[in-house]
């Protein structure tokens, strides 16, 4: 093999992954954007070309129909709003549960810390689908939770837990909790305990110390964790399909139904574009936090 010159070798190192991502990640979104302006037709592929030729002249066929349709049919607005509500509530619950967990891990001895972190990570490595599926068996009306509560005499009739808002929250919090704990831990671990000791010496009570010292220092960790939960939760498909309500769909399910059930590729593309527009701000914010985090480590 001929030895590559240093400059062209470097260009290759950056160029190969860049080219891959340009073709398989960037280009697809441009195609989605294009098809969202197209019209459905019964053919292969099931959408009309954007450029038609009329009398030898190009005639662009840009349609805003799909977007107009999303605006007029209340199904889409309600699915979007419901997804935002579910994602927001789940993110808050994840934070309420994940913050103390990350705090406790950061305060434990180094040897224990490794084990605890691994325990938080381990479920993430086992099948997501099977873990969500497990909740059906726990939550259904003759499921484990109802059976235990009935046996204890705490309830006399089984509770309806499955296919409710509650079961979707459970599913999302359960699946995304590690994404909240890990960035929070990475942040809390770096705090200087001397600050807390100084505050204690000056007579600050534990709650005040938390509110005035620990919390302000961990804002970046909170933001990163919250975004890592919120963004994927918006488009979640598996959890609401297995655990969620049947009378109120989330937007990920709507997109997939438009595509698979109605075979309406242009409307599915328009839904994807609106979702992306919704997520651009949170995704950009997250990337900024992550870059800052990485630079702080160097």
């Amino acid at each position: 093999m001929a030895r590559l010159s240093s400059a062209s070798g470097r260009r290759l190192v950056a160029g190969v992954p860049l080219a891959w991502l340009a073709v398989l990640f960037l280009a697809p979104f441009l195609i989605v954007l294009k098809i969202s302006f197209s019209q459905m037709r019964l053919a292969v592929p099931p959408y009309a070309p954007l450029l038609a030729w009329r009398h030898g002249l190009p005639a662009p066929q840009l349609h805003l129909d799909n977007y107009a349709f999303l605006l007029t049919d209340p199904l889409y607005a309600s699915a979007f709003l419901y997804s935002i509500k579910v994602a927001a509530v789940s993110t808050l619950v994840c934070l309420a549960l994940g913050y103390p967990m990350a705090y406790a891990i950061a305060r434990s001895s180094p040897a224990r810390r490794t084990v605890l972190l691994m325990l938080v990570m381990l479920p993430f490595w086992t099948s997501f689908l099977l873990r969500v599926y497990a909740w059906i068996g726990l939550l259904q009306s003759d499921g484990v939770i109802n059976n235990v509560l009935l046996a204890l005499g705490l309830i006399h009739r089984p509770l309806v837990l499955l296919q409710t808002d509650f079961s979707v929250y459970i599913g999302i919090v359960y699946s995304y909790l590690p994404f909240m704990v890990l960035p929070l831990f990475a942040n809390l671990e770096k705090h200087d305990p001397a600050l807390l000791e100084a505050a204690a010496d000056l007579g600050a009570r534990p709650f005040t110390r938390f509110l005035r010292i620990t919390l302000p220092q961990s804002v970046h960790g909170i933001a990163a964790g919250a975004l890592l939960v919120f963004i994927p939760a918006i488009g979640e498909y598996v959890i609401p399909s297995l655990l969620g309500r049947t009378d109120q769909l989330m937007i990920g399910r709507v997109l997939s139904d438009e595509f698979f059930e109605n075979r309406d590729w242009p409307v599915a593309s328009a839904v994807a574009i609106v979702m992306l527009a919704l997520l651009v701000v949170p995704i950009t914010l997250l990337q900024r936090f992550e870059r800052r985090e990485l630079e702080a480590r160097r």
Binding site: P17, L18, L21, A22, V23, L24, F25, L26, A27, P28, F29, I31, V32, I35, L227, L228, I231, P232, I234, G235, E236, Y237, G252, L255, S256, F259, W265, A268, S269, A272, M275, L276, L279, I283, L286, Q287, E290
Partner: peptide
């Protein structure tokens, strides 16, 4: 930007985009 985006991109969007590609 391109290396971190797929991590948070909702899967339905990526699936649709890749199939259309």
């Amino acid at each position: 930007g391109l290396t971190t985006a797929p991590i948070v991109m909702p899967e339905v969007i990526m699936g649709l985009a890749l199939l259309l590609l």
